[in-house]
Amino acid sequence: MQSTSKLSRSWLSNESQREAFTAYIFILPTVLGFLIFVLGPMISTFILSFTDYDLFSAPTFNGLENFERLFSDKRLGTVYRNTIVFMVFAVSGNVGGGLLLAVFLNQRLPNLLRVVLRSAYFFPSLIGLVFVSVIWQFLYHRNLGIINYYLGLIGIDPIRWLSSKQWVIPSIIILDVWKNVGFAMLICLAGLQNISSDYYDAAAVDGASAWQRFVRITLPLLSPTLFFVITMYSIGALKVFDSIVVLTNGGPGDASRSVVMYIHELGFKSFDMGYGSAVSLTLLALIAVFTLFQFRLSRIWVHYD
């Protein structure tokens, strides 16, 4: 009796050892890649930010100098302000627009119309941001662009979309919403399709208006989806780079320069690797704090069944 249980236990441990061994082999490439290319550089960012390093001579330790510089760097303030303004409006536009589109497309519609509309709104999400930015740079052109041409037809004076301080960030936001609203729509649409129609039937019996149904049923039941989209789009917006490089290259002056553009400039144009790392660290910290904050906030408004 004892021997069988011992036997079965040893068989089990052997078995589970084999299972664990297979598992470690399976995850090995991913873990290795993570250690070398994600965790390693993260730690190096931290270490480098305490140094002065220009790529040509060996890095020297310079204590907190880079961090002191963060506080006196006026350009850093500008690039953060630009990036955060962009984030707030781009995320609102993408998520708000995506939600509206999804609610509309979720109604009873001719199937062909639904498929065509869904594809049309989604298509730009698949195309590279650089490619569409090249197109929009032409569309936005002050004299030769078709946007100002059509605005002129309804009596609006040409707008300096890409060369006036006032319009550069709105231009970049418009492009971003045009490009990304379709993906937000798609995810909201998937979320809407998971809501049971029983809720709406019950609401119809009670005589709830369309607005009431939207606020009392759709929004709460869609809140996990919305939370996911908002978090994802916010982190994405903090990385904004490609579209600005193509459209304005950060100009006029620094009026449209983003944090990542600044990091890229510090690292690969000024070769100021140490300070560039310190700035990178602020971005990492901001994303971490922001994500935690969103999770905290989500406890209040996100409703999981």
Binding site: T30, V38, G40, S44, T45, K239, I263, H264, L283, I287
Partner: peptide, 28 residues
Amino acid sequence: LRFRGKNIIFWLLLSSLMVPIQATIIPL
């Protein structure tokens, strides 16, 4: 599969969702 450290490793990997490549590009 069951193996020791599964959850810790998974959460550690998941944390990289918050680390954009742009922020570690200099050391990379």
